[in-house]
């Protein structure tokens, strides 16, 4: 197995990991603070991808498309929160799951009406489409490096906002005792809307970053959403740190499993076994990992302390 391939696949794993983190952070924040299970989080990712791709085609400016796509997703998220989700905070998880499942059907079909069912592809602008010479004969796409950079920067920013600012203080307080926060005179509804919009924007950011490298199509959100669930279950629901580490673990395991499990099985057992079991096992790997983690730590690796 050559070294270049290992480094390349590790970078791919890191890139998938930060994408998963962008989605997991919003989902876990919304759950931790509002106690809301939002299946439609994947729909916001899809909305972000479509809006950015569409604005890029309209304006021809990649930067403008990013800004408009992000703002658009934020807007859609806030509208969804105000219209539908607000009434769900007091309901049990079952109602939340079903109502947001309904929202998924609605969004997938709405996107199909507006842009059709077929996947649309977006291109990268000239200055982002090159490769970077990392070492010797290792060339890695610049855009994927950019995704890793943006993801890590957002993680740092989130850490700063949550642990160092007044808004972050309210967020942490809301997560541990919302009745108390409301009693102290904080407008908890406004806080909820802000947090939800923030989560929506992060999902949109993941979507618009994904646009140029994945197929943009209705239903794209659900494929990644279930992986995000695995991330936050492994990391511990409600914990940003758990979401970050969980995302990196899942991204790595999934990518490296898909790349090396088949050749490894072929080498160790037999080529036939590798061909037969490799792909199946690789696609099941993250779920097996989740089962293993839960068997020992039912609350995930980094459970939130104290909070309700």
């Amino acid at each position: 197995m050559d070294f270049t391939l290992v480094v390349e696949q590790t970078l791919n794993g890191l890139q998938l990991g930060v994408m998963l983190f962008l989605l997991a952070a919003g989902l876990t924040l919304v759950f931790g603070i509002m106690n809301l299970v939002n299946l439609a989080h994947g729909s916001l990712y899809m909305v972000g991808a479509y809006l950015a791709t569409w604005f890029y085609q309209l304006t021809g400016s990649f930067a403008l498309a990013l800004v408009l796509g992000l703002a658009g997703t934020l807007l859609v998220g806030v509208v969804v929160e105000l219209v539908a989700l607000r009434t769900l905070y007091e309901r049990d998880h079952l109602d939340q799951v079903l109502a947001t499942f309904g929202l998924i059907l609605f969004f997938n079909e709405l996107i199909a009406i507006l842009w059709g069912r077929a996947a649309i592809y977006s291109t990268l602008p000239e200055f982002l489409s090159g490769h970077v010479q990392l070492a010797g004969n290792l060339r890695y796409p610049l855009y994927r490096l950019l995704i890793i950079g943006v993801g890590l920067a957002v993680a740092l920013l989130l850490w700063f906002v949550v642990s160092k600012t007044r808004l972050g203080m309210l967020i942490r307080a809301g997560a541990s005792n919302r009745a108390m926060v409301a009693a102290l005179g904080v407008d908890i509804r406004l806080l909820y809307t802000i947090v939800f919009g923030f989560g929506a924007a992060l999902a949109g950011l993941a979507g618009l970053l994904a646009g140029p490298i994945f197929a943009v199509q209705p239903g794209m959100g659900e494929m990644i959403l279930i992986q995000v669930f695995v991330v936050i279950v492994i990391g511990g629901i409600g914990s940003i740190r758990g979401a970050f580490l969980g995302a990196l673990i899942v991204g790595m395991v999934d990518t490296l499993g898909r790349a090396f499990l088949k050749p490894a099985l072929s080498a160790v057992i037999s080529p036939a076994a590798g061909d037969a079991a490799g792909p199946a096992l690789a696609s099941m790997l993250i779920y097996l990992l989740m089962a293993a983690v839960l068997a020992f730590r039912p609350e995930g690796l980094f459970p939130v302390r104290g909070g309700s």
């Binding site: 299970v37 998880h93 799951v97 669930f229 629901i237 779920y287």
Partner: peptide, 27 residues
């Protein structure tokens, strides 16, 4: 595994295991 957990964990775990079987069927 899943019955040991409750609430949101139970929802997500049962979903994830089914997704695993789905991918097994696909592959």
């Amino acid at each position: 595994i899943s019955v040991r957990t409750s609430g949101i964990y139970f929802i997500m775990i049962t979903l994830a295991f089914t997704q695993m079987l789905y991918y097994l069927g696909v592959s």
